[in-house]
Each structure stands twice: as structure tokens, then as C-alpha cells.
Nucleic acid binder design. Structure first.
Lengths: 361, 361
DNA sequence: TTGTAAAATTTGTCCGTACATTTTGTACCA
DNA sequence: TGGTACAAAATGTACGGACAAATTTTACAA
């Protein structure tokens, strides 16, 4: 219907199937070929130019641009054709367990011939927004792997996520997701079951008063808390709000930077014989604080947590913690994204935990 | 001179200083205002449209687009205005010492109110090229921090680096640079001095036959090798090519994956009493290989290396290694880039090494 | 007051022309 | 052979006009 678009389409497919070698016909020739005015041809060429398919040189002609893929292929003609452009958006990159998770993701993606582009939100929604804007402006993007930022609270960037979805860009969340976004895949720890598992374990060890420390700005914290509460209820144990301490990213930075505040801790866990911590990082600080306060671990207070990271190994005593086996969240999420990109059947996953018992309980 | 560009410039600055509220005047009004034809006005508006400054709606008008910054600022009005968009291109992200270096860079950039976008080349020039193409297509990019890829060999991506330079995008190399690129800043380890330092140290310990294992695809390997050779020469020690083993990324992957090949190692270091390794990762494998072959470290063979990472700590015996203090390469490079962006005076740096003596020598 | 139809407004598409600027090719001359 | 000058060719800039399509405003009628 619209001439210049039709002409642009014709020329584009001509370029892509290699009908033209290096240059396009001149504007004059195209005018005759398509029986339109020169302005219309120029409009069509402007489209291709803005798509970076061609370059135009005054006095010379319209040249077909080498695409990024071709220019890469020229360097390594042996590499298979398909090289996926995948972005990974995480909260942190070089802290805590994140390097390990990234390594899992990288290795899984590398097995599928792709190198991820990494973005760190630092768990700040403002940063997340900047990153999403960057992603939306990329012209090749085969898929996105996202660790939700502050998933415990309503997210103000859902509009940008929706734009990604509207463009049919495959999207998989891991660790935390945004429940408001319908029909998106996510690969999550089974945090609810994990919280329950830890209560199970402590109950069997004879503990009856169990405190909890959870992170409020990640949905993982909410889920672990829910599992903890359900576990208590299952055994008819008393649930006491004052035995639950909530913290968030900002609070951790300010208060728990060097060691977990002994005053707050003792207030929360007073009267308890065990405490479930959101993760090893917090647990290690709790153990240090307790030990400094003269409360023996595990004799006076058992400490258990999630992640089973090097923090739990380096702490004295070592901390009983939940972890995954071979198929951890990072690897599974990357695998799911690849399947999604290839339009193979796939679904959201809940990855179960395995308990590793150590000396802190 | 060229009307539509002048008009575009006028309108652009009008938009940026807020002369227009939400919409621009109609094409007809602009025609009268600038005394040009409607086609010329449309050309000017097309420029602004391609710059994503305005949106045009048929039958309605030309609307000023909300920029990404404004949309971020709306979320956090309290944040300071300047938020730099900085890309960091490294070889690896989650292996060896790279998480630590990234943490240094991140913390230095965070102190300047910026969160980096991370790209990993996996030490593959083809991947590097893809990443550079992505960078060139970003519409806001305040600076780039690059760890050169395979700096030991001529780099086929210099054309893309030159494009970045031509666009006046501040660029700082760290760890390794491309000498062919003139007038670029770089922050490097003083590898030559490091190689010499290790020879100095071993000579003073009484060693006279010293082998070396170096990485061939990074310029750091060449420099450390040159320092090693200069050190030997300084003390009049014999230099024997057969006592130098070169390896590269691909070779390491295939042969040295799990442990350093004892056959090759013993062939190289036969007749020597000490070996200088390119880094702790290789050194740890060498120590393992030697111990398994019944060669005691350090009694029969002293092992020293670069980086002083956790590899050197976890090895038994722990490995004598060179490291940096507070002002390591990552931090200095980030600082240099910030200065460059702010157009403050800055220069290339060579960061000196400090020797940490342990049990392997 | 509300809903609908018509009119006016605004941008989108398309044509034709003219001349400028840059590149490329050719002819000529030394 | 080589350099210069000119011509030709190609894209860039600019003008004018006409009609199409979408949106907004206005007018009118129920």
C-alpha cells in the first residue's frame, strides 16, 4: 500500500539474500525500476540507512553495510552461525555468592555458544531502570535473564519489563520475580519449603523456641519467612513477632556492615535456643556477635541459614546451611532461557534445597 | 549553512533548555517562523526523531520525549543529577582474581555515583568485537574501561576502538593495552619490574638456574618475561630458551585444565632450582604437579608467582607472590577514567608490585 | 447533557523540479 | 608516464504542490 515501505522491504530482502553484492543500484535506476519518484526512493533508502543496513556516500553510491555478525564471523569463520546475544541482569556481581552463580550461568550459556552481557543493579530500582532502558535500545537482543531487584516491594519498572515482553524478547527471572508480571517464566529456590525444612531440622534436634532473621526487600525473604511460620505452626510451636527481625539492603549497609549488632540480636533471640538466618552472610555475623557476647554456638544457641556458601565454611563454628546440588538456580535459569529462545517447551521451576549439617547446630 | 541542520540545532537546544513544554509548534508554524518550506522542516524534525528527542503523531503533533534520565530521576528525585554511564570490558568476570578487581572498580565508580555495565570477552577477540559493536550502538556512553583481549597478539578490533576514540568517548585500558593505539591512557601493572623483582629475590636466596612459565597471548606475559630475562642478564646468569615455557588461553584449557602436566613441567624446569610462574593459578598447578612427582617445594624447587591471590593462600605450601596494596590496578584505572571524563589532568600509570614472602621459596 | 457527524487541523505519503556537493572517470597536455 | 582540468555521475539540500490518514475540535441533534 505504502510505496516507500514496500520498496524498502523489497530492497531489504534483496540485501539479506545477497542479490546485491556491495552496492545498491543508483537512485535513478531504482526510480525506473519501481516507477516512482526519486523522493520516494530516498525515503526507502533512509529506512534502510536508519536500520544500519546500508551506508550512503555522496557522489559515490549506496553501500551494503557489513553487519556485526558478519564482521565477527570474518574473524572466526569456524564458529557456528548462531551466536546468541543474551543479557544477564543481577543485583550484585562480585559479592557473596554472585560470582559463583554467574559462573554457572556463563558456563551454561557458553555451552550454547553465547557470552552474556552483564548488568548489575546493586539492588537499586533506579539503576534497574537505567539498565532496562539500555536493553530496550539494543538492536540485537536474543534473551534476558533477570534477577529481580527489591522483589519484596512493588516494582516501578514493570512498564519497561512489559515493553521487553511486548517485543517478544525471551525473559526468565531467577532468584526473585515480580508476581505482577503475568506469563513470565521464573526459576526460583523453593524458599517456602526451605524455611519449613530448617524448622523441621531444628525441631528434631529438640529446639522449641526458634527465632528468625529475614530480608524484607527480596521476595525470597518473604517466602522463607512464610515457610518458617508454617513450620512453627505445623508443630504447634508459639509464633512470636518479637522473635522475628527484618532487615533490608540499606539497613544492612548501615548497621550490619562490620558485625551484626549484638543488642538487637540478643533482644530478638532472647528466650530462644535457635535462630534461622536469611543467608550465610547474616548468619556469620550473628555467630560472631553471639560468640563475642559469650553465648556459645551451638550449645546455647543453634544457628542455621541458607546458601551454604564459603561464609558458612569460614565461620567458626561452620554453619549448617541449605544448598543446591548440580542443578542450581543459575544453571537451570540459563537452561530455561535457552529453551525459551529455541521455542522448546519449558516451564517455571522451583529448585529444592538440600541440607548440609555442620557444627553450628 | 545547511538550513535543516541549523533548524534542528535550534529546536534541539530549545527542547533541552525547556523552551517547549510538551509539544513543538506545528510544521506550518515552523515554516513561517524559519521561512523555509515544509519539507525542510520535516527534515529537521526527522533528525530530532532519530535522536529520540521527539515523537510525532499523525494528526496530532510533535511531542517531546521523556529521556531515560528524566524517567529515572522521576523515581528518585533525590539522587544527584550526574549519573555516569560507564562500560567495563574485562576478559573474565567470575574466575580467578577478576571478581576482586571488579569489586574494586565497582566501589570506585560507586563513589562517583555510577554503576558500570559489564561485558566479558572470555579472552576471545570475536567476542570482543561483538561487545564493541554493542558499545558503539549505545546512545549514552560516558566512558569505557577496557582490559585488553589477547594483547600479546595484533588485535583485529582496533578499527572499532578507533571509532570510540573518534567519538571522544573517554577510554582507559587496564592490565593490558594495545600499543598500536596512540594517545590512549592505560593503567598497568609494572610487569617488567615485577619479573626483575622475582629474579632479584630468588638470586638473593641463592638460586642460580631459574625457569619461567609465561602466558603468550597477553602482553603482561611478554613484559614479565622481559623482566625475567633482564633480571637474569643483570646477574650474569645463563639464559636458556628451553627453560621457558609459553602457554596461552587455549592451551591452558586443553592441557592444564585439572593439573599442570608433570612431563612438560619437569622438562622445562629440569636442572633449575626455582621457577617463576605467570600467576598463582599456574603456580598452584605447578606446585601440585611437583609434589605429586616427589619434588619437594621449596627444598628442591622454589616457586614464585604474580597476583598473590587466594590460589597462593590455598596452595600447600603457600606461594610467594607479588601483589598490590591499596591502590591496585582496578581502583586506579577507574579513578583515571573518572578524571578523564571530568577533563581533569591525568596520565597513564604503572602500578608497582610488593612481594609477599610465603613458604614456597 | 450526551452522542454523532462534520469540519478543521496536523502529520504522512508522493510527485516534480532545481541546484549543490562530492566522488569518479576521462581527456588532454606536458 | 604522470599530473591537471574538466565532465559525468551520484547523493545531498531545498522548494513547491497535492492528496491521504489520523486526530482533535466544533457543530448539531436527540
Amino acid at each position: 500500500m505504502i510505496k516507500y515501505k514496500q520498496i524498502a522491504d523489497t530492497l531489504r530482502s534483496g540485501i539479506q539474500n545477497g542479490s546485491y553484492k556491495q552496492t545498491l543500484p543508483t537512485e535513478q535506476q531504482l526510480c525506473e525500476q519501481f516507477q516512482v519518484s526519486r523522493q520516494t526512493i530516498r525515503q526507502a533508502l533512509a529506512v534502510l540507512q536508519s536500520e544500519k543496513l546500508i551506508e550512503r556516500r555522496q557522489g559515490s553510491g549506496s553501500y551494503i553495510r557489513e553487519t556485526a555478525e558478519e564482521s565477527s564471523e570474518r574473524l572466526s569463520a569456524a564458529t557456528p552461525a548462531e551466536r546468541l546475544s543474551i543479557a544477564v541482569v543481577t543485583t550484585y556481581i562480585s559479592d557473596y555468592i554472585f560470582p559463583g552463580i554467574l559462573r554457572e550461568i556463563e558456563s551454561e550459556l557458553a555451552a550454547n555458544n553465547s557470552t552474556p552481557l552483564l548488568f548489575a543493579t546493586q539492588n537499586q530500582v533506579a539503576t534497574e531502570r537505567r539498565i532496562l532502558n539500555t536493553l530496550l535500545e539494543m538492536d540485537v537482543l536474543d534473551g534476558v535473564l533477570v534477577e529481580g531487584t527489591k522483589t519484596g516491594f512493588p516494582n516501578p519498572n514493570l512498564d519497561l519489563y512489559q515493553k521487553l515482553i511486548d517485543r517478544d524478547i525471551p525473559l526468565v527471572f531467577f532468584h526473585g520475580n515480580y508476581p505482577e508480571l503475568k506469563d513470565t517464566l521464573s526459576v526460583l529456590d523453593d524458599n517456602f519449603a526451605g524455611g519449613e525444612m530448617l524448622v523441621d531440622y531444628l525441631y528434631q534436634k529438640g529446639h522449641r523456641a526458634i527465632a528468625g532473621i529475614f530480608k524484607s526487600d527480596d521476595i525470597q525473604g518473604h517466602q522463607r519467612y512464610a515457610g518458617y511460620a508454617a513450620g512453627l505452626h505445623k508443630y504447634g510451636l508459639p509464633f512470636d513477632d518479637s522473635h522475628v527481625l527484618w532487615y533490608d539492603t540499606e539497613l544492612k549497609r548501615r548497621i550490619f556492615e562490620h558485625y551484626f549488632d549484638p543488642d538487637i540480636t540478643s533482644q530478638v533471640i532472647g528466650g530462644c535456643s535457635a535462630v534461622i538466618c536469611y543467608n550465610d552472610e547474616i548468619a556469620a555475623h550473628v555467630v560472631t556477635g553471639l560468640t563475642q557476647s559469650g553465648i556459645a554456638v551451638p550449645e546455647k544457641m543453634a544457628v542455621v541459614s541458607f546458601d551454604n556458601s564459603h561464609y558458612s565454611e569460614l565461620s567458626v563454628p561452620r554453619i549448617t546451611s541449605l544448598s543446591h546440588g548440580e542443578n542450581n538456580v543459575g544453571r537451570q535459569a540459563a537452561r530455561t532461557l535457552i529453551r525459551l529462545i529455541r521455542r522448546e517447551p519449558c516451564q517455571s521451576l522451583l529448585v529444592p534445597w538440600v541440607l548440609t549439617e555442620k557444627e553450628s547446630s
